[in-house]
Design a protein around this nucleic acid. Structure first.
Lengths: 117, 117
DNA sequence: CGGCATCCGCCAGGATACTG
DNA sequence: CAGTATCCTGGCGGATGCCG
């Protein structure tokens, strides 16, 4: 989304700010996987986020980079190699996503238990 | 969004699960304000979330209720009174949103500082 | 006061094909 | 391998008006 400096006429809410930066269908998962693996190539991300198309992956990565959450390192080789890592700002976001993960995991466990008679 | 039992053919990712439940433009803020004020009426929420239309507020509250994150208590009086509170599951989500708030707040502070020469 | 009913625009996201 | 380039659709969210 690449937050453009405040269009908003309304009181800035930090929660809203955070959601606008990591909202969208894939951003959370990309950041989380980058945290787990430290560094991931484009193709590795595609294999990790099964339900993403190349277009959406490129687009989302570009937005995250513009927002300063991830770093893109391109090695000019043949075949090409591009690696993505978290920036310091991105790393600061990990505890929050970690909490979301824990919560989601717990809910999924409860759901599983409920479906086992 | 009211997660319908897994359509997803793909490996369930807890982060994805969490984002599908609290994604959308307003859900995070609604949960956060409910946490701060404990209990809020419909009209109070409208005044708190300035950029929301009645339709979106009703719709979002209904989704959150179906997802079991908030509780709706309707008092049959004239004039009507409806109060919203967090459910236990919703309360478990607060630490995560709190982390997001802290992160967003910090980034906003840094932005403010950068714009002050 | 606390909604619901309609209608609608827009853009996030999807499908498919191609390229340096 | 790591992306672009197009074209297209669905549904999120907006605007307006009415109701118990």
């Amino acid at each position: 989304m690449a937050i453009e400096k405040n269009k908003e006429k309304f009181a800035i809410c930090a929660v809203d700010y955070a959601f606008r930066r990591i909202g969208g269908k894939y951003k959370g998962r990309i950041l989380w996987h980058l945290h787990i693996h430290q560094v991931l190539r484009y193709g590795e991300l595609r294999k990790t986020i099964l339900d993403i198309t190349p277009k959406m992956l490129s687009q989302t990565l570009k937005e995250l980079e513009l927002d300063g959450l991830i770093h893109r390192e391109s090695y000019h080789e043949v075949p090409p190699r591009v690696e993505y890592t978290l920036t310091p700002v991105g790393i600061e976001l990990i505890p929050a996503i970690g909490q979301l993960f824990k919560w989601g995991f717990k809910q999924l466990e409860k759901g599983k238990a409920a479906n086992m008679p």
